[in-house]
Write a protein that binds this DNA or RNA. Structure first.
Length: 466
RNA sequence: UCCCCUGUAGCUCAAUGGCAGAGCAAACGGCUGUUAACCGUUAGGUUGUAGGUUCGAGCCCUACCGGGGGAGCCA
C-alpha cells in the first residue's frame, strides 16, 4: 500500500494489517524496539514503523514490512505501523551519500539519481507531475490537441540561438570529420590558418546538416493551420555558453499555437493557464506545498494563492519604458529589457506583467507587424519571484509578402523555410501562440531558485552527468 | 563570454603565516517509546590541481579545474 493512501484514509485503516514497501530515511534503535521511518516517494512524510529488537537499519535500505496500523501513543505522528514481518529487499552500502540530516541543494545536485529520495525533491517532483496533469487538463478543456512535432530538424534559425548539430558519425575520428588547415589572406595580405570543416554531410544519416530543435513553434503553426488549436510539451535544446540559475541546455518547452484569435485573447490564455495550474497544485499538492513552505521556501503557499487572485497587468512596451524611466532607470526606446528593468516592472505592478507591442527591430521575423511597421503584435510575460520572463508569444505574420520581406531583412534563408512560407500561400489565417519555460514555471510553483533543481536530471552547459 | 564569491574528513563548518579540529554521518557498544533521539568508543585528511613567495603556507601570489551568484542572452 502506498504511504500516501495511508495518509488519505488512515482512520478506516486503523487496526488492520497492511503491507508497505520503501526506503529507510532514519532509524533509532532502542533496547527492545527500533523506530524506523520509511518513505516510498508518494508523500512528503514517511510512516513510522516499530520493529522488535534493536537492529539498526542503515539509511537508504529498502524494506518490505507487514504489520498492523495503530494510533501512535507518542507525539509526532497520528499513526504508526507495528511490524509483524520484515523483509530487507536491498541492503544499503556505507557509501550512500544521503544522510538523515538536512543537506544543501547544491550538494544534492551531485547525486541527481538519489536526491528524489529526499523529502524536498520528492515534493518538487510530485508538484511538477501535478503541473503536467493540470496542463493537459487545461488545454484539453479548451479544445487544444496535444501533438509533439519533430525534435531533429533542418531549421537552425530562430534568432541565432545556439543549436546542437546532430550526426551519426563518430567525430572523434578525425578522418571522418575531415578537418583541414587552410590558409586565408586578409586585405592586408596577412595570412591566417583556419580549421575548415570539409565534412561530407551527404554521407551522413540525413544527407545534410541537421539540428536539435530550439523551438517547435514553426511546425506547430503548420498543424494549427489545419486543426485550429494545438500544443506541445516537447523538449527544446539551446547550446548557449551560459550557466545561470534559469538556463538548461535541454528544457521542457510548452508551446501553443492557435488560429482565429487576437493578441489579447492569446495573453488571456496564458493568464488563465497559469492560474488554472496554481489552483490545481494548491488542490492536489497541498501537502507538498506545505512541506516546501515549511523547510525550503518560506511563503510558497501565499505566493501561489497570490497568483490566483492577482490580475496580470498589461502594458505596452512604450509604457514600460516610460515607467522604467520614471523610476530613474536608464533605458531608451528600442532597447531590450534587462533583468533589472524586468524586476523594476514586476515590483511596480506588484505582480505578473504582460509587456506587449515591442519594436520589430529587436524581435523575430515571424511576428505580426503593426500597420506602421515599427511595432509587432507580441508579448512577454514577466514574473516576480526572480523568475523573469516566463512566456514569450506573438501573433504570427500571416501575409506572405510581409513575411518574406522580414526574412530577408533578418537574414533568414528561404529554402528550409519553404514549408513555413507555404502556410501563407495556401489559405492563410490569423494565428498566434506562445512558448513557456515549463521548468521555470516549476520554479514558480515549488520555490526552487535554481532551474537545475526542478528537473530530474539537469543537462546544462558543461554539465551532462547522466 | 565578462565580473564577483567559493573550494579543509562522506556532509556542515572551524583553525592570527607556526602541532589538521568540532558537530553530524559511518562502524561497534549502551539506553524503558524515539522524533535531526540520547550516551560512550573507534576509524576517517596529498586542505580542488600545478607552480611560486617564505625558515615555515589550509591561510599570501599566479594559472588552471570545479561549484555558486550576477551580467549578457533567452524560455
Amino acid at each position: 500500500m502506498r504511504i500516501s493512501d495511508i495518509f488519505n484514509s488512515y482512520e478506516t485503516l486503523l487496526d488492520s494489517n497492511i503491507l508497505v514497501q520503501g526506503w529507510v530515511t532514519t532509524s533509532r534503535p532502542q533496547k527492545d524496539v527500533t523506530f524506523v521511518k520509511l518513505n516510498d516517494g508518494s508523500h512528503p512524510e514517511g510512516i513510522q514503523v516499530i520493529v522488535n529488537g534493536s537492529d539498526k537499519f542503515v539509511v537508504g535500505t529498502s524494506l518490505q514490512i507487514n504489520g498492523k496500523l495503530v494510533k501512535s501513543p507518542a507525539e509526532g505522528q497520528l499513526f504508526e505501523l507495528l511490524s509483524d514481518s520484515l523483509v530487507v529487499l536491498g541492503h544499503c552500502d556505507n557509501s550512500y551519500p544521503l544522510s538523515k540530516t538536512k543537506m544543501s541543494l547544491d550538494h544534492l545536485r551531485n547525486f541527481a539519481h538519489l536526491r528524489a529520495r529526499t523529502a524536498t525533491f520528492g515534493s518538487v517532483f510530485r508538484i511538477k507531475s501535478a503541473i503536467s496533469h493540470a496542463t493537459h487538463n487545461f488545454f484539453e478543456e479548451k479544445g487544444y490537441f496535444h501533438l509533439d512535432p519533430n525534435i531533429i530538424t533542418v531549421n537552425e534559425c530562430e534568432g541565432g540561438a545556439g543549436v546542437f548539430q546532430v550526426t551519426e558519425k563518430d567525430i572523434s575520428i578525425p578522418s571522418k570529420l575531415a578537418l583541414e588547415m587552410s590558409e586565408t589572406k586578409d586585405v592586408n595580405g596577412k595570412v591566417t590558418k583556419v580549421k575548415t570543416d570539409n565534412y561530407d554531410w551527404s554521407q551522413d544519416h540525413f544527407e545534410k546538416p541537421v539540428y536539435l530543435t530550439v523551438s517547435s513553434q514553426l511546425q506547430l503553426e503548420a498543424i494549427a493551420c489545419a486543426m485550429g488549436s494545438v500544443y506541445t510539451t516537447n523538449k527544446s535544446f539551446r547550446s548557449e555558453h551560459s550557466s545561470t540559475n534559469k538556463h538548461l541546455s535541454e528544457f521542457t518547452h510548452l508551446e501553443i499555437e492557435s488560429c482565429f484569435l487576437t493578441l489579447d485573447e492569446l495573453m488571456q490564455v496564458g493568464e488563465d493557464y497559469i492560474k488554472f495550474v496554481a489552483k490545481y497544485v494548491l488542490d492536489k499538492s497541498v501537502n507538498d506545498i506545505k512541506n516546501l513552505d515549511k523547510f525550503v521556501s518560506k511563503g510558497l503557499k501565499d505566493r501561489i494563492e497570490t497568483i490566483i487572485t492577482t490580475p496580470f497587468h498589461r502594458v505596452k512596451y512604450t509604457e514600460a519604458i516610460s515607467i522604467a524611466q520614471s523610476k530613474g532607470k536608464t533605458i531608451k526606446f528600442g532597447e531590450d529589457l534587462s533583468s533589472e528593468i524586468e524586476n523594476c516592472l514586476t515590483e511596480h505592478f506588484c505582480g505578473p506583467v504582460f509587456v506587449s507591442h515591442w519594436p520589430i527591430a529587436i524581435k523575430s521575423f515571424y511576428m505580426k507587424q503593426d500597420e506602421d511597421e515599427t511595432l509587432c503584435h507580441n508579448f512577454d510575460l514577466l514574473m516576480p519571484y526572480k523568475i523573469g520572463e516566463l512566456i514569450g508569444g506573438s501573433m504570427r505574420e500571416d501575409n506572405y509578402d510581409k513575411l518574406l520581406m522580414m526574412m530577408k531583412r533578418k537574414g533568414v534563408s528561404e529554402e528550409p523555410m519553404k514549408f513555413y512560407t507555404d502556410l501563407r500561400l495556401y489559405g492563410s489565417v490569423p494565428h498566434g501562440g506562445f512558448g513557456l519555460g515549463f521548468d521555470r514555471m516549476t520554479m514558480l510553483f515549488t520555490g526552487m531558485e535554481n532551474i537545475k533543481d526542478t528537473v530530474p536530471f539537469p543537462i546544462a552547459f558543461r554539465n551532462c552527468a547522466y
